[in-house]
Design a binder for these strands. Structure first.
Lengths: 347, 347
DNA sequence: TGACTTTGAAAAAACGTTTTTTCAAATCCG
DNA sequence: CGGATTTGAAAAAACGTTTTTTCAAAGTCA
């Protein structure tokens, strides 16, 4: 995150301190880095400089430090993880680990990872996004339709990899296209006929694809159009409320696909409260974006991509762009992983 | 005063490109930033420069860019979030939000947030930690005992705030001391007499305090020393296995305190598998480090600090250190929040 | 033809550090 | 007392950019 404010009024630098203490900047630097013994600065001068620094409230400029460069500081590449505030960032850890491994192969650079968060729909206002002043490459995720539209017409002057979004001109890593269809198949095999899909509003590119894929396949295999159950957001509470309202209103459903595990967990509660059994009365399937889905009660069946895989592919693709130059259109599809558990009747 | 025209062996810079293309660095920079129209660079030169840049694989040095400074790039302060790989980073989002709010008021600087992860126990090897080359201030969390020992003897040359660790010489934000005692009281009030505490190994400072506090208070109020149930780590699976082994071995327990919600969720499964009821046979209480604890089945009672509060306090303290200079010993205790739910028999 | 303008690009300056070099003054030693 | 050494600190160089300034050559116009 970088919040921009506009008081250009002089920052305190080694120069200010030097002026204030009446010494040279070299002496100031030596003292500030505790090199005053080797550099033979007299105790009085040390004291003067320390006092001035404390009084003025000195904050070193990290860019300048790194530019000058000490050990391992040079040849540093800055990668940004750009995500909206509203969405969780479960990928962060995986991404950093993946990046670390990709890097460990040992080449000439060191990497820093910067986290930049923006309010949903306002990616365009992010400082440094258009100029490339802040990082060398970026991984962008959790964008809204509005952000996607902005990205489609912008041209970012550095390598970018999109996660779970597909926009012309950008390489991206996305879940396999049949993420929506597969759950429909699974539920149909489970003999579900009146299926439902629980999703949030507004839809993102990914959740829309899941919903559409599910609707089509479910209709195709069962001959019955599934119910669309719309929650306010992707949270447990929203899922609970939407599902409760649906059931209360007499909605019937023997197989439910939730486009996030949070929604699935919320639905669990509504279903149980209604006195229905999972999977006996309603089979439920999620997307596997919660690591703890196997510990839901009953354990949640999921069809989705492995976060680790997604992160690894994204990291690899990003580093490739950096190494080989940008390839504008490359899209990597991460294969689905089916984890069938008790919520769809598996052992 | 001959400007050097040599090609440095290392990283590709504007200088290398200029030498390769036989032009000046100014021209290179202009072309690279798409300023060649205003700057009246001839099409042939543009082409030459583009070709050289592509061929050499140019990556701009972000530090140099930021040093030169465009709009809003100056006066930038870099904050680091330092955490071990092994632990989740649920605080990240809260921290960034809190920071953003804290910053919105003051308006002298812009901030960047850097994420630095280290393998548990090897904080000391983190590049830039001792020199302060990478950031202006840091928030350190999820350290092991070994890391804590390192911190105790190190002197980091920038403001640091520890999260949930207390080490002489560092300001810190910690959960209230009675985090372990309170659950014992609650369970005792629930008429639990044979209590147990489920924790991971090795213990961190925080989990040790919880365990110790619980043991003492439980013994004090009930007169019976609680069982210590030790899991391999803080995961659901480890909690499940430890609890299952405990119950299988004939262990009895009518009130369980888990030092992480992950452990609690694992224990849930073991308890249910054994045919026991929650809270009927075993009341369970966690620490509230999972946002979804209210959606466990039954909803998990928790005694712990609010992540948001923790993050806000940490951010505030860090910014204070930056603004006012370091205050070595300040410790902020974040008050406990009791969320009593069905797992201890609440409505 | 000669005083202008335009064109294209090189040179220089600046950003804030850290480190290396230089240098004057003080001190030492024979 | 004078050359050599030590002390303390200023000055300069370097890091890699971007922007501003300078400047030569070519073109324009009267």
């Amino acid at each position: 995150m970088s919040r921009n404010t506009k008081i250009p009024a002089g920052r305190v630098t080694v120069n200010s301190i030097a002026a204030h203490a009446g010494v040279s900047i070299g002496s100031v630097s030596s003292v500030l880095n505790n090199r005053h013994v080797e550099r033979r600065i007299s105790p009085e001068t040390v004291e003067k400089i320390r006092a001035s620094a404390a009084k003025l409230g000195y904050l070193p400029n990290i860019s300048a430090r790194r530019l000058r460069g000490g050990d391992g500081v040079k040849n540093n590449v800055v990668l940004a993880l750009i995500t909206s505030f509203e969405a969780p960032i479960p990928l962060v850890k995986h991404f950093i680990v993946a990046l670390r491994q990709a890097v460990a192969a040992g080449n000439e650079h060191t990497f820093s990872v910067l986290i930049e968060m923006f309010p949903a729909g306002r990616l365009r206002e992010m400082p440094g996004l258009l100029t490339g002043d802040h990082f060398n490459a970026a991984l962008v995720m959790n964008t809204t339709a509005e952000d996607d539209a902005f990205l489609a017409r912008a041209h970012l002057p550095y390598p970018v990899v999109l996660v779970n979004r597909s926009i012309p001109g950008y390489p991206s890593v996305v879940e396999a296209a049949e993420a929506g269809g597969r759950p429909a198949d699974i539920l149909f095999r489970r003999k579900c006929r009146r299926m439902g899909v629980l999703h949030g509003s507004p839809l993102t590119q990914t959740t829309r694809a899941r919903v559409d894929g599910f609707m089509q396949r479910a209709l195709h295999v069962s001959g019955i159009a599934p119910n669309e159950i719309v929650a306010g957001m992707l949270s447990e509470l929203a899922g609970y409320e939407a599902m409760r309202a649906f059931l209360k209103g007499g909605g019937k459903c023997d197989g439910l696909y939730a486009v996030s595990d949070a929604l699935a967990l919320g639905a669990y509660r509504a279903i149980k409260e209604k006195g229905l059994g999972i999977p006996g009365d309603v089979a439920v399937i999620g997307v596997g974006d919660y690591d703890i889905a196997p510990f839901f009660d009953p354990p949640l069946s999921c069809v989705g991509v492995s976060h680790q895989e997604l992160a690894e592919q994204a990291a690899t693709l990003l580093l490739q762009q950096l190494a080989r130059g940008r390839e504008s259109g490359r899209t990597v599809e991460v294969p689905l992983v089916e984890s069938l558990r008790a919520s769809t009747g598996a052992a």
